[in-house]
Design a protein around this nucleic acid. Structure first.
Lengths: 120, 120
DNA sequence: TCCTTCATCAACCTCTTGGTTGAGTAGGAC
DNA sequence: GTCCTACTCAACCAAGAGGTTGATGAAGGA
């Protein structure tokens, strides 16, 4: 299992079945059996998926008689969006600057190289 | 390899080394050798990581003499943020409604159950 | 031409992952 | 008590991921 939280969250959502379960849980809490119903896999496999989601902090499980209602914890999403937004903004900012440089150059100049794109 | 684009992007970013490379590339383009330098792995391993990032659409590689400058493609991030935001908003909206229901109930009522949290 | 550099391809190894089956546990219902 | 339901645990298996080493390709410099 990945040590860092960000790796766990990304890995958990890398599986389409698990993303599907998150989508289902966004509508409302559900039991393991309810979550397993739409899929052509055993309830044990679904239980494993839920454990991955739980380890990532994406869901929590309580107890209610024999049932184990699963609950979506939306806060962890922020971890990802913060990471993503940081580097997206950084990359976009870089392009803005590159465009400025290109606009300030004469038309017959050479195309941009690695060095020009990566000013150190 | 995962078939759907979203799975590929999430899986690509589930590895801390690859996230690190994305962070490096947000600063500017780099060659495979430059990207490999900080890590205690072979350049072949780094080349494999870059292939994963490329298959996910997160980076592109051009040619420049023997070098293969790697370039960050920030647009794919939108795929993820859209997915994340959709379900986060949905979950938050659900809580807002749940809070309204709870507030409208008498104090001595039972704690919320799965059914109450999942009105269908 | 030969050499060096930068990077990929191919084969292999180990650990993880997503699935299975079978057994076990927890808690109503009868 | 004995069932039945809902779920988890344990062991196993096939496939994939991340790493290695060794060989190969592609391009500039001597």
């Amino acid at each position: 299992m990945a040590a860092d939280p960000l790796s766990r969250v990304f890995a958990a959502l890398a599986d389409p079945t698990r993303r599907d379960m998150v989508a289902r849980l966004a509508v409302g809490d559900a039991t393991v059996g309810e979550l397993a119903a739409p899929y052509d896999v055993t309830v044990q496999a679904v239980s494993k998926h839920l454990r991955v989601l739980e380890d990532a902090g994406l869901v929590s499980r309580s107890r209610e008689a024999q049932r184990r209602p699963v609950h979506l914890e939306a806060e962890v999403f922020d971890l990802m969006t913060k990471w993503i937004e940081r580097y997206r903004r950084q990359a976009e900012e870089r392009y803005r600057r590159l465009d400025d440089v290109l606009r300030s150059m004469p038309d017959d100049d050479a195309p941009p190289t690695t060095q020009e794109r990566n000013p150190s």
